[in-house]
Design a protein around this nucleic acid. Sequence first.
DNA 1: AATATTTATATCGTTCACGATGCAAATATA
DNA 2: TATATTTGCATCGTGAACGATATAAATATT
Lengths: 152, 152
Amino acid sequence: MDGRFKLDNQLCFRLYTASRLITQAYHPLLADYGLTYPQYLVLLVLWEKDSQPVNDIAKRLQLETNTVTPLLKRMEAEGILTRTQGKKDARQMIVKLTKKGRELQDKLSEVPETVGSSVLCDSVTPETVPALFHMLDDIIGQLKHNNNESNS
Amino acid sequence: MDGRFKLDNQLCFRLYTASRLITQAYHPLLADYGLTYPQYLVLLVLWEKDSQPVNDIAKRLQLETNTVTPLLKRMEAEGILTRTQGKKDARQMIVKLTKKGRELQDKLSEVPETVGSSVLCDSVTPETVPALFHMLDDIIGQLKHNNNESNS
DNA sequence: AATATTTATATCGTTCACGATGCAAATATA
DNA sequence: TATATTTGCATCGTGAACGATATAAATATT
């Protein structure tokens, strides 16, 4: 059979699988606090810089607002954050962490290390991770560029 | 702020983003034939080996049957494949490509190369891809192992 | 042979992800 | 200032993912 179509030859399938499995690895750590992995990503963004409009959060996560808006609403319903209309620009919705949202950072302090260490193996070590990051960043940059190009 | 929580330090976020962007890259190529990326993956599996039970397809894609079953039903509705009860084991549903499903392989012959070449860049070249594959395979193997372990 | 367990698949509910579209506020242009 | 365009966010519909659970067939145990 044509080797081009072999699943094992495909980068995309590996990324797809790795991404799903790593989300599953987060699950037991986050489920205790009623969080999903994308919600955890939102928290990472807000812990870095609190009080941001929806658009900035979406851009940071490379997601569309139609993905982020419902996600934020669920987190608001959970009392993790607030969404208030911007004063300077009435179109913007400013997202702020609540006390509960900020406190989650302490409660989840073990998470990055736990997941991080669970991925380490023969070929993925503190020495090789930078090279892996570099390749993934290049791929992401390339795809972002190509995908945007075909939209215009 | 604690560097552990920085989005930019996280392997998982890179994999998550790369996976999503690559799916988006496939979209325009597959949409012409009414296919989604996961449906394309099912086709890759069946082109490799036609006539498989649901479970074998799910295992190959590292997915659960509750993800694959509805997916296969949609593809059946599109006339791409058939699902017939197994004779040897009446619990199994045997999935077979239709003529239309087999013919899609010719129509999509350009897809692997098109997507493949669109990710090539400075740090991702035919020379470095094997190393990237090796790291991703290691990560996948590690995660598969860890995730199964915590289920038992 | 009768009962228990495992296996293969399916159903259900929830949460993304995202294309398409809508709407109101802000900005640019006439 | 009136009109057009852009921008920020939201709504809607569809298709994954996946945890939890159900069901029937196959297999193992008693």
